[in-house]
């Protein structure tokens, strides 16, 4: 009795960097997770350092000397934490690109208008028409095809 299966078994395997859990590190991260985390660290550092610098600029008129070190000490771990949180919801069926696309679709303002009164009723509708008799003939005349149909018939 042959088994019927999808191709998802091999597709959903995820290669991890630096070995499986416990081999090198007490956790295992996929290549994407590593990439996101490493990308997030400088972003976190810059973000926190920038905030500190901005606060210093407002409070004392210049960026404090420890802005970078503050960013490094707090920004980097915060970025790692943030990356872990984000990647926790990333699965084979909902990859990162899906998450980004969904966020763009759901929160992006470009393609949406708030449902304020009056309602726009702007749902589109295509033009519809039956084929003209001349066009019908075109699709029914075997001469037009030139005998090139290659579909195999029932075995």
């Amino acid at each position: 009795m042959p088994e019927l299966r999808t191709d998802d078994g091999p597709r959903k395997l995820r290669a991890v960097w630096l070995g499986p859990k416990g081999a090198t590190l007490p956790f295992e991260w996929t290549y994407v997770q590593w990439a996101v985390t490493l990308l997030m660290i400088p972003v976190g550092i810059v973000l926190i350092a920038g905030l500190i610098a901005l606060a210093g600029l407002v409070a004392v008129g210049h960026a404090p000397w420890f802005a970078f070190w503050f960013g490094l000490i707090y920004g980097a771990p915060a970025a790692v934490y943030g990356a872990v949180r984000i990647m926790r919801g990333v699965t084979f069926d909902e990859p990162l690109r899906y998450k980004i696309t969904t966020a763009r679709d759901e929160l992006g303002g470009r393609s949406r208008a708030a449902a304020e009164p009056p309602m726009n009723w702007r749902m589109p509708w295509p033009r519809l028409a039956e084929l003209s008799p001349a066009a019908e003939r075109l699709f029914e005349s075997p001469d037009v095809v030139g005998g090139s149909g290659s579909a195999a018939e029932e075995t």
């Binding site: 949406r112 208008a113 708030a114 449902a115 726009n120 589109p124 295509p126």
Partner: peptide
């Protein structure tokens, strides 16, 4: 807020 979904067909 609830929004009216807009897209071009």
């Amino acid at each position: 807020a609830r929004r009216e979904v807009m897209f071009s067909l």
